[in-house]
Amino acid sequence: MDAIDRKILAILQREGRISATDLAERVGLSLSPCHRRLRALEEAGVITDYRASVEPSKLGLGFAAIVYATLREGSRENVLAFEKALLGVPEIVQAQRLFGEPDYMLHVVSKDLATFQRLYDDSLLALPHVMRLNSTLVMKSVIPSRPFPI
């Protein structure tokens, strides 16, 4: 990856809808080499997807919580079963496995506190191999999402 690839990535992180023509012009390439670089970045797994950033409150998802999960036993089978089950809970918008305790940090969105409580009781507590859940409520997003420093 060279400086031009990094410039392409920096621009795409900020302006995902930029046309290939405008992108090529901004990085100083003609259209064809710019397309080749984009394709190579996608095939190498550097660019994993393209999506719109959405304001959750505009979708009725005005409540957010961070839920910390500790598994009873960290065996390979338990970890795989837990991680597979996470995929079935759409309100979990990000999940990270951690070193030490707790084992996971789950970013959860919902309509409101009552909806979160039902989700917690019905779905999160039912996740396989959970020993303990601790949650903290999000007061506000200070940096909801930003580009990686390239």
Rank of each mutant, 00 (worst) to 15 (best):
C34I: 10
A3S: 15
I92R: 04
E73D: 15
R26W: 07
P147K: 10
E43R: 12
R26L: 05
E55V: 04
R36Q: 14
E77T: 09
E43A: 07
P149M: 09
A40L: 08
H129E: 05
V108F: 11
V130Q: 01
V109P: 03
V109L: 15
L133H: 06
A3T: 14
E91H: 15
L23P: 02
G45M: 12
A65F: 03
A10K: 08
L106C: 06
T48W: 01
K140Q: 04
L87R: 14
L87W: 05
S30F: 06
H107R: 09
G74A: 10
T21Q: 07
I143R: 08
E15H: 05
I143E: 13
S75F: 00
A95D: 00
S53Q: 04
V138C: 12
A52E: 14
S30M: 05
L137G: 02
A126W: 07
V142H: 08
E101L: 08
D5M: 07
T136L: 11
R6A: 12
C34H: 02
T115M: 01
K111I: 02
I47H: 08
P56I: 09
E83A: 07
N78V: 09
R36T: 09
E83F: 05
A64N: 01
L113M: 12
P102W: 08
E91M: 05
R146Y: 04
E15I: 06
P147H: 06
V46S: 02
L12D: 04
S110M: 11
H107W: 10
F116T: 00
A52G: 03
L80R: 15
Q117D: 14
T115R: 12
Y68K: 07
S57P: 09
A64M: 00
L98W: 03
Q117R: 14
A126M: 07
R26N: 11
V27R: 11
L80D: 15
S135R: 08
R76C: 03
I92T: 10
V79F: 05
L106K: 07
M139V: 15
V79P: 02
R132L: 10
I47V: 08
L86M: 05
L12K: 06
R97S: 12
F116P: 03
R76H: 14
S57V: 15
